[in-house]
Design a protein around this nucleic acid. Structure first.
Length: 802
DNA sequence: AGCACGCCGACT
DNA sequence: GTCGGCGTGCTC
């Protein structure tokens, strides 16, 4: 094989194809598909992935590839295929798909530098620029001390040249070791000759004479309470030697895990696990939907199926939503499988993520627990893929490639002939419908393992509170119940369903709301920096003292953020110890864990937070869960609003009274009769499913129809509309009779970063050629996209309709 | 994307 | 003449 087919790291649709390069002799034996290479691309050099090798090319002026970055492939043949499939499925670029499958640090870092080629006769301007150096980073041109044209001229004249560098971001961690550099008897001699004043050196030498093995430098420094200086002296005398050894960063090094043994399964669990184990043993692909109420022991089923996979020498992937990747969750896996587990989540540093990924790649672990992107873990003998809380929307990636981890998991499960288990107490409607139709194998766990009843749910009608003259955020029932529980030494969790709320700033005089100058959205107030901030473009400005419209000083903060609740609660119940958990208080690394620990140690009576407290937390002493605004999501223009409300209420109810103390849930709402709230309060998933399916059918939404969303954006309002109209027209022309094109309509946020956004929604039952059609239509606008900065993006099966 | 090339008006 | 701005085409 003399030719490499390479996908280059240039994210442009005109480059979305393989480029061929001849393989220099020295790389012929080692180069394999799945390795990263550096290739010349036009005048510069870029990184690329070798997707295949060949003996000939249809292109006749081939260049040689410049370098090979990996010793072994970082993408397996399966992942190479998967990336291709993913790109085509989501209408993304191949390069974007491959990048999404790998840790950030494996991405290339591009640098340019200037080299002076002659030591004489540079103009004084350039001489000053180089300042005695032969190589200068290109960015120094921006300092403005040298004119760009001068440099350009010098490049043309051959006095200077530009180097295009492709650097790796990989940082490896090393530990330094010390060992004696000479035979013990020679050290002995040196010790005799040593000055009496060099006490520390003597101690060190004595130590190494007695113990001539290698030892960590850090340990030595600690043991003898000394510094590098002393040791360096001994090294420079040639008595000791230091060397560095690469180590993996281990984010869980400090934590002790008590090993747990498999638990006895209930008969229900037993029934549910049996068919999964069969599939593992038969090496057969099947998708299971494990529908189990909170506390029914889904995790134990995961653990025991994984054990079977491990025993067979195969590997397992467990996906968990980002927000429930808490230490509690991780511990359960580490406790069962010890160091055989790698964990991948966003809380790790880039280096830590890379190290965990490498433990997978080098077959050092058999289990990965991680968020969405862990579905790409480079295992080669997958025995099972588990997706916990499969209904969670965070499994859908919201930027390119817009994939759903569930689809990827099923595709991989099919390839590896292994089962995929989707677990949830409140399955996504799509999943349950498939299970109901027999596409997925449905397994139900209806009982909690401890036989405890689910806590009672009280729905409080907040309209009545208002009529009764209670204008606070807390109903009388909630307030009384909180006081009662806290006086008994029990704990309370309060959930603010914040979606749909933000803390914006409004003038009470003229009603002016401060909006982002670049986006059509109100700015959000951030207390700690006292700034207004745009969540879409990161624009920031200080909070105005006076209204910019009418100069009034009656500026007020609106909305119902956790901060405001905290203040209101402190006024209402001044004695209470309160912990607030939201984006603001959990930004710092480890803050999340610290807050939870504080609560677990009963250093607070109330934990107040957003969605992130609804998942997986398990506190013995919590007996009351209050949902402050259950219907805040229901009014959003989202056909999944009811589903999300039902899911959230069910999840959060599972947080109360999981142990000996009986629990209670209080749900505050302005729409107590809404079926999602009413049925969630009765834990009736089946009724909810049927009711919601009726709605979806009536309004022609998934799972009855598929959706695809095309978004068009341009800085010129008219161009955006017109293009959107043309696209809609084209779509109408070619789609089937029963397919509907909605729009163009302005996106819910009509302008972001000074670009106007319009969208067309495609609703269809069966459109096998839709991807090809959309591609064809987009290609017609290729010219405008490049020359006039028109952007068209496509989301197949969108979750967020904006 | 990011670079070079080529055309054009403007200016030391 | 030469500088720098922008539109256009190409990248194995």
């Amino acid at each position: 094989m003399t030719i490499a087919n390479v996908i280059v790291d240039v994210p442009a649709s005109s480059i979305n194809q393989t480029f061929d390069y001849t393989i220099p002799e020295r790389f012929r034996d080692i180069l394999q598909p799945g390795m990263r290479v550096i290739v010349p691309f036009g005048p510069r050099k870029v990184m690329g992935y070798v997707v295949s090798l060949a003996d000939e090319s249809s292109f006749d002026k081939l260049k040689e590839l410049a370098d090979v970055l990996d010793l072994t492939p970082i993408l397996t043949p399966e992942l190479l295929d998967l990336g291709k499939w993913l790109a085509e499925e989501t209408l993304s670029l191949y390069i974007t798909a491959y990048q999404a499958m790998l840790p950030q640090v494996l991405k290339a870092n591009y640098k340019k530098e200037l080299e002076r080629l002659r030591q004489d006769s540079l103009s004084s301007e350039l001489e000053a620029f180089f300042a005695g150096r032969d190589f200068v980073p290109y960015e120094e041109l921006d300092n403005g001390h040298v004119r760009f044209s001068k440099v350009q001229k010098a490049i043309q004249d051959g006095d200077i040249t530009v180097h295009y560098l492709v650097k790796s971001r990989v940082t490896k961690k090393y530990v330094t070791y010390l060992e004696p550099a000479r035979e013990p008897h020679l050290l002995e001699e040196a010790l005799q000759d040593m000055s009496d004043r060099a006490k520390k050196q003597q101690q060190l030498l004595t130590f190494f004479i007695e113990q001539p093995q290698e030892i960590k430098l850090k340990t030595v420094m600690k043991k003898f309470n000394t510094t590098r200086a002393t040791i360096n002296t001994l090294i420079s005398k040639g008595l000791l030697r230091s060397f560095r050894q690469e180590v993996y960063r281990n984010p869980y090094a400090q934590t002790q895990f008590d090993r747990t043994e498999p638990l006895e399964l209930t008969s229900e669990q037993h029934e549910a696990i049996k068919p999964v184990l069969h599939r593992i043993r038969d090496h057969a692909h099947e998708v299971f939907l494990l529908h189990g109420v909170t506390g029914s022991g889904k995790t134990e089923i995961y653990l025991q199926t994984i054990q079977e996979v491990i025993d067979r020498g195969e590997e397992a992937i467990v996906l968990v939503p980002e927000i429930s990747l808490t230490p509690q969750m991780v511990n359960r896996f580490k406790a069962r499988f010890g160091s055989n587990v790698a964990v991948l989540h966003s809380g790790l540093s880039q280096g830590e993520k890379y190290d965990e990924w490498r433990r997978v790649q080098q077959n050092e672990v058999q289990v990965v627990v991680g968020a969405r992107s862990a579905v790409f873990a480079p295992f080669e003998n997958l025995g099972i893929i588990i997706i916990d809380e499969e209904h969670e929307t965070s499994y859908k990636q919201e930027d390119q490639p817009r994939y759903h981890a569930r689809d990827v998991a099923i595709h991989r499960g099919d390839y590896h002939h292994c089962p995929v288990v989707l677990g949830s107490a409140t399955p996504a409607l799509e999943s349950y419908a498939r299970a109901h139709k027999g596409v997925y194998n449905l397994q139900t766990l209806s009982k909690r393992t401890n036989d405890k009843a689910m806590p009672d749910v009280h729905v409080v009608d907040m309209r009545e509170e208002l009529h009764a003259g209670n204008r606070t955020m807390f109903s009388r029932h909630l307030k009384e119940s909180m006081e009662q529980r806290i006086s008994r030494g029990e704990q309370v969790v309060l959930l603010l369903n914040r979606r749909g709320y933000s803390t914006f700033v409004m003038c009470r005089e003229c009603g002016h709301v401060r909006e982002c100058p670049h986006c059509d959205i109100a700015l959000t107030f951030h207390k700690h920096s006292n700034q207004l901030r745009c969540h879409y473009c990161s624009y920031e400005e200080p909070v105005p003292m006076y209204c910019p419209m009418c100069s009034s000083d009656l500026i007020r903060f609106f909305g119902t953020g956790t901060q405001r609740i905290e203040e209101a609660l402190t006024q209402l119940m001044p004695e209470v110890r309160l912990l607030r958990m939201d984006v603001d208080t959990t930004q710092r690394k480890g803050a999340h864990e610290k807050l939870l620990n504080q609560f677990a140690n009963q250093e607070a009576d109330i934990l107040l937070g957003t969605q992130m407290i609804a998942k997986g937390l398990d506190f013995e002493n919590v007996t009351l869960v209050g949902v402050l605004t259950a219907d805040s999501m229901l009014n959003l223009p989202d056909f999944r609003a009811s589903e999300k409300t039902f899911q959230l209420l069910t999840q959060v109810s599972g947080r109360a009274g999981r142990h000996d103390l009986p629990g209670e849930v209080i749900v505050q709402t302005y729409t107590p009769d809404h079926y999602s709230i009413e049925l969630a309060s009765r834990y009736d998933y089946w009724q909810f499913y049927q009711q919601e399916m009726k709605m979806r059918k009536r309004f022609q939404y998934p799972p009855y129809m598929f959706l695809s969303l095309v978004t068009i954006s341009h800085e010129n309002h008219v161009t955006a509309i017109q293009t959107a109209q043309q696209i809609a027209k084209q779509l109408w022309k070619y789609v089937r009779q029963d397919t509907v094109i909605l729009g163009p309509t302005p996106s819910p946020i009509a302008r972001v970063k000074d670009r106007y956004r319009y969208q067309c929604m495609i609703k269809y039952k069966h459109e096998p050629e839709l991807r090809a059609l959309i591609n064809k239509i987009i290609r017609q606008f290729a010219d405008d996209m490049r020359k006039r900065d028109l952007q068209i993006s496509v989301d197949m099966q969108p979750y967020q309709l904006m």
